Amino acid sequence: MVVSKLDIVVIGSLNMDMVVRTNRSPDAGETLIGQAFALSPGGKGANQAVAAARLGAEVSMIGRVGKDTFGSEMLEIIRNEGIHIEHISVSEHQATGVASIVIEEDGENRIIVVPGANIELTVEDIQALEAVISQAKIIVLQLEMDLAMSEQAIAIAHRKRIPVILNPAPARVLKDEMLAQVSYLTPNETEAGILSGMTVDSAETAEQAARILLQKGVQNVIVTLGSKGALIVNAEGAKAVPGFPVKAVDTVAAGDSFNGALAQQLVLGKTLEEAVSFANAVGALAVGKEGAIPSLPQLSEVEQFLNRKSL
């Protein structure tokens, strides 16, 4: 099924990832010898936009890069994925965002993001793009950019009755007024804990945290649980959606692939449970490859994966 133009608008970050592979992360004051280094295109916004586009969605992205080599590379990469880039602006003052990523032997990662040009996208910029937001069937955001800008974008979408997916990463405390305008909140366990003010370390506490977030006005909370899948909590109750355990090579962009897939499936009219199950499969495929954008699967790969699992 082909979806129409501007079905998904992603408002988010574009970063160049500097990836180091090592057996383990160093302790404070310790120097280790790593196994490999690579530059890889990423940024949570870019990852989510590419994830949705590779699954067949028509995607437009709103963001900002620097006037530098990384920025030029990011624009070319996003354009080559078929994503509309006319609303990705170029900063005259800030460098393109970068992320320092350490990937351990078991595939787990530790990330430090320097937002750079991403943080320059302002409330005024997003207000000027209200017409673009108004054309979307769903809006996708994260928290690697200016928080006031994100709040404004969500307010515009809410006013226009456009569903909003908010991936609350990097984790931070958010205003209740902002949360009350979110259709689908997709925290992992750590993020759910920060947003709810409680410790989340089990399926039971994940549900408790999600119910606190429902009380703040979120319509649907989807807590991602890694290989264990995801937990949907809304007014209808709580539903665990099983994951697809695989050997993790690199967990960078696993959550981003989930969010891009979730948006694409919801645009196609899938039920929330169907959309989350499909997104779990996309996330499982993403952790089986190295890199952020390079790890994101095509629709044909996901369909083949699901067909194998159903046999």
Score class of each variant (00 low, 15 high):
Val3Ala: 09
Ile8Gln: 08
Val9Asp: 11
Gly12Arg: 02
Thr22Leu: 09
Thr22Phe: 01
Pro26Tyr: 05
Asp27Cys: 04
Gly42Ser: 05
Lys44Ser: 03
Gln48Lys: 12
Ala49Gln: 11
Val65Pro: 12
Val65Met: 11
Ser72Asp: 15
Ser72His: 15
Met74Gln: 12
Glu76Gly: 14
Ile85His: 04
Ile88Glu: 12
His93Gln: 15
Ser100Asn: 15
Ile103Gln: 08
Asn109Lys: 01
Ile112Ser: 13
Val114Ile: 10
Asn118Gly: 05
Glu124Asn: 12
Gln127Glu: 15
Glu130Ser: 12
Gln135Ile: 00
Ile138Pro: 10
Val140Cys: 08
Leu147Lys: 14
Leu147Tyr: 12
Ser150Val: 14
Ile154Gln: 07
Ile165Phe: 03
Arg172His: 08
Glu177Asn: 07
Tyr184Ala: 00
Tyr184Gly: 00
Tyr184Glu: 03
Pro187Ala: 00
Thr199Cys: 05
Asp201Trp: 03
Glu207Ser: 04
Arg211Phe: 01
Ile212Trp: 01
Lys216Asp: 08
Val223Asp: 10
Thr224Met: 10
Leu225Asn: 06
Gly226Cys: 07
Ile232Met: 06
Ala238Trp: 04
Lys239Ile: 04
Val241Tyr: 07
Lys247Gly: 11
Ala254Arg: 04
Leu266Lys: 02
Gly269Asp: 15
Phe278Trp: 14
Phe278Asn: 07
Leu285Ile: 05
Gly288Arg: 06
Ile293Met: 13
Glu301Trp: 03
Leu306Asp: 13
Arg308Thr: 14
Ser310Arg: 14
Leu311Val: 09
